Amino acid sequence: MRSVLLVKTSSLGDVIHNLPVVSDLLHHWPKLAIDWVVEESFAEIPRLHAGVRKVFPVAVRRWRKQLTQRATWQEIGAFRQAVRSNCYDLVIDTQGLFKSALLTRMADGLRCGYSREAAREPLAAWFYDCRYAIPKTAHAVERNRWLAAAAAGYSPDLPLRYGLHVDTADTAKPYCVLLTATSRDDKLWPEAHWQTLGQALAAEGLRCVLPAGSARERERASRIATAIPGAELAPPSSLGELAQLLGAAAGIIGVDTGLTHLAAALDRPVVALYVATAPGLTGVYAGPHALNLGGRGQCPAPAEVLAALQPMLTKKIRP
């Protein structure tokens, strides 16, 4: 086998969950050329894996809002032309959605995806040449890996490897990253809890850094940081810059958001906080240094978070 195209467009956490597929394929075919179709806003993530040759950014989210514009169809045509400039042995859609299946259909190669009963959107299965019944009860990372293994014909029993490589600078003072923002308000952890947690970390000499994107997120992060001695807001950053920040952190505590999954994929000590969603099938998944706390209708207390983080840090903290 010479080349494979992976189709996993979004969201950020889903894209990160697909990275081990690259490592698995390269274990069996070290010279394999692997390309990836991904939403333009997440294109930096596949590029952090040295095994990805080429990234094809798409803008499905933007295109759907601008279907009447000529420029949109020009972009779609340019994508189709670019992706069809290669003839792939396999085109593997691990997204399992109608939109990803349409993109898969544009590529030249044996198109593989989930069966009707296994796909997130059953209609997607009609666009594949080969369909596989991957259990929905498995974690998302393993579903991706099992689908790729079934399509490529190998046993999915390899060690889990995300394969991310980022440059990190040594820092004089260790720091923890607090990922306080997420896409839904019901997933947020209370501000008072963040302040209590941050104060405990600061008392043990750990500087707290709070990334935030939108103006609303920065306002909330600023309120939290104000109550934590020495805390600081991270400047507006790209995904690559955030990966560097996370990669050098002593520990990361985050809500249900893609950046928390990125931290876990970077093999950093991570505690993921769940309040409105269940972590069983989509929680952080990266071995003993990635822990999920809480769940639907549950809210972990700061002391519980500190107790979970403590064994993973070289500098101990007191609950």
Rank of each mutant, 00 (worst) to 15 (best):
S11V: 06
S3A: 11
W73F: 08
V60L: 14
R145Q: 08
Y132I: 08
Y285K: 06
P57F: 07
Q66A: 15
E142I: 11
Q66N: 14
L12A: 08
G247N: 07
R143E: 07
R116S: 13
P46G: 01
N144R: 01
L97K: 00
G280S: 12
Y128T: 01
D35M: 03
D24T: 00
P229H: 09
T196V: 15
A151T: 08
C299A: 09
L281Q: 11
K315C: 13
P229K: 07
W126I: 02
R145G: 06
A148I: 02
D35S: 10
W63R: 01
G96Y: 10
V58K: 01
P30R: 00
D185A: 14
A234P: 05
G251R: 11
A78H: 10
Q244E: 15
V275C: 13
C130L: 14
G163E: 05
A43N: 02
R80P: 01
D185C: 05
E39T: 01
R47M: 03
V141F: 09
D93F: 06
A118I: 08
G13V: 11
E75W: 02
T137H: 13
L25A: 00
Q66L: 11
R53C: 00
K173L: 14
A151I: 07
Y88N: 04
V58C: 01
L313I: 12
I134W: 08
L6T: 03
A192D: 15
K31T: 11
V271F: 09
T182S: 15
D129V: 02
V52H: 00
A264Q: 06
G294W: 04
D267N: 15
K8C: 09
A265K: 02
W146I: 03
A140I: 12
A290M: 05
R223Q: 14
A243V: 03
D14S: 00
A149G: 02
L158T: 06
V209T: 07
G240I: 01
G213A: 12
L123V: 12
A151W: 09
T180S: 15
D14R: 02
A234D: 14
R105T: 08
T171Y: 10
C130N: 01
G113E: 04
Q66W: 04
L309G: 12
P122L: 02
Y128K: 04
L242N: 08
L160F: 10
A301G: 07
G287W: 01
A33H: 05
A181I: 11
A169F: 10
C87M: 04
H17R: 05
A221C: 15
I134Y: 04
L245C: 09
D108Q: 12
A200F: 06
K65S: 06
L158P: 08
P311M: 09
R220W: 10
R2Y: 02
L273A: 09
E75H: 08
